[in-house]
Structures are given as C-alpha cells and as structure tokens.
Computed example of a mutant assay.
Amino acid sequence: MGFVKSFEEIMANTKEAREIYNAEMITVFWETTPEIISNLLPPPLKPATAPVAMAFVGDYPTTNFDVTYKESALFINAEYEGEEGYYCLSMPVTNDMAMAGGRERFGFPKKMAEIHFEKMDNRCLGWTERRGVRVMQINVTLTGSFSDSAVQDRLIKNRQEKDGSFQNIFYNFKHFPAPEGSAFDYDPRLVSQITVAKPKELQLGEGTITFNASNYDPWHEVEVVRMLGATYMEGDIAILNGKVAAETGFMDLLPFAFLKWDMK
C-alpha cells in the first residue's frame, strides 16, 4: 500500500455499500412551516406532502471502510419527480475520512464537529458543538409511542416486511468551486442516494430538539412548530451507491451552495 495503488488494491476497496455495524442512533421528527421548507429547497427539488424535518445523532463503532466516528444531521422533506426523500442541510462528523468520503462521493454537507451520544435506560441525549456553540441538542424519552400517532403509523408502514429494514432516499447537490475563482467547476449535480437501516432494536418515544443560533451552522432556521416523535435504533446501516439524478444551473444553486463551508 503506497501512493500509487495496484489494480488489485483498487478493486479490493470497491464496495456496493458502505456498511456500518452495531450503530446506535436517536432521531427526532418535527413539523416546521411550509414556507421554511420552500425557502430552503434548491431547484429542481420541491416540497413534499408534509413540512417535516428530521435530525439525528449516531454513534458508529464499526464499519467496512476502516473508519469509526459519530455523526449528526439535519434534513427536510423533499420531492424529486414524484419520489419523496430527505434533503440534507447539515451533517457534522467527528472523523476527517468520514467527512471527505460523504462530501466527495455523494455531496453530503459534512463538517468536523464535537458530537456526544448517550443512552441512559429509557432516556437518550445527543448534541453537536462547532466553534464553541452547541448548535443542537436532542433529548429523547422512550415512551413506546410517538406524540403524533399518524406519523408513527407512516413510519411503521415504511418498514419492510421481509427483514424489518427501513429505506430512505437522500438528496444532495454535488459541486466544487472552480480553481479559477468562479462559482463552480462543473454544472452542479443533484445526487439521489438510498440508505438502508436494519434495526436489531427499535424503540419509539417522544423528543425535543434545542437550537442555539450560529452564523456558521444555522440549524435554528428550521423552526419547530410541533414535535412529532422520536426513535432509538441499534443495528446496521448500509449506505448504498448513489446516482446523478439531474444537473442544475449555476445561478439556480448558487444561493444554496454554501452548506459545506463556514461563511459569515
């Protein structure tokens, strides 16, 4: 293994999925406003049926890509050509290779951060800090049910009968600044990517999310109108290879293109 890889080494590192084993995650869901969703979605993404936001904190102790790390993320519901998924607004991580891999392959807006995850019987706590600000904190109580039964029903319906897994589509925009100093070095690409969660344990409950305003990580812009519920999962995650779903124009994406960098 050196600076120049052999064909055998390259092929040995080619995977259909990035696998995470024995992950622990807490996730909270809330209703925000349709106006916030509409303002935050770049074209060609459109608002989905309901103005729902989601955030999680995860601890990933073992992977098939030689990285262990913690991660958190903020998503809003979105739709592209009739397929509902989640558009990622922010995804802090604790490992540089996890940051580079997700950003360069799929376009996830990853930044380095301090992340905490803790489970205490039926209570869970997670938070993310960057540049001296606790950007978000999640508190979950595992009561056995969501505060909104309709959202709970949709979650359970989404579970695959065959193996109990969940599949979610994630949308990101892949782009890089041009070396000449102009906006982008190619037309920004909308990437569609599926992640499969395979719970060994899944508990439902209620949760809260608390934001602190930050110029660099403005999670507080995704206003909480009503909390919907929370989950705790222990299990495996498969991050499947994605695809380029569309290309968009420079000016269409430019106002939305600074999720990956700290700009004040």
Rank of each mutant, 00 (worst) to 15 (best):
M97I: 15
M54H: 01
A197I: 08
K46Y: 03
W219D: 01
E129Y: 09
I115A: 09
T27Q: 05
F7Q: 11
S145T: 14
P92G: 12
D59A: 13
V140A: 06
F56N: 00
F166W: 10
E71A: 12
K111E: 13
E247R: 07
Y60Q: 02
F166V: 04
F146W: 08
E180S: 15
D163S: 06
G164V: 04
A213W: 14
G207E: 00
E79S: 14
R18C: 13
M263A: 12
E8V: 07
A213L: 14
I76K: 00
G82H: 09
M227H: 03
N77H: 13
T210Y: 09
A98N: 07
C124H: 00
V4A: 11
Y21I: 14
L240F: 05
E206P: 03
M1V: 10
N168D: 05
Y21K: 15
S214A: 11
Y21W: 14
D59S: 15
G102P: 03
V244Q: 12
T141S: 12
W219E: 03
P179N: 11
V52Y: 03
D66P: 04
A246H: 06
E104V: 12
S182N: 10
C124P: 00
A150M: 04
G144P: 09
K111V: 14
D96L: 15
G229K: 01
Y186H: 15
P255F: 14
Q203S: 10
D59P: 04
Q167G: 08
L204K: 06
Q137W: 02
M99R: 10
I10D: 06
K162D: 07
M91S: 07
Q160D: 06
D185F: 09
S145Y: 09
W127D: 11
P44D: 04
N22H: 13
I209C: 06
G2E: 11
K264V: 14
D262S: 15
V140D: 03
Y80M: 05
T27V: 09
P177C: 09
W261G: 04
M112A: 14
Y216A: 15
E83D: 11
S6R: 10
Y186D: 07
Q193R: 11
T231A: 03
N64L: 07
G207C: 04
I156D: 05
E16Y: 11
P47D: 10
D217T: 15
S90W: 01
F176R: 13
F7A: 12
F29C: 00
V151K: 05
L190N: 00
N139F: 05
A73F: 02
E114L: 13
A78K: 01
N168A: 08
T210V: 15
Y186L: 10
K111D: 10
E71P: 08
M1C: 09
D185I: 12
A98G: 13
M251W: 04
R154S: 10
I237Q: 01
E35Y: 07
A197K: 01
S6L: 14
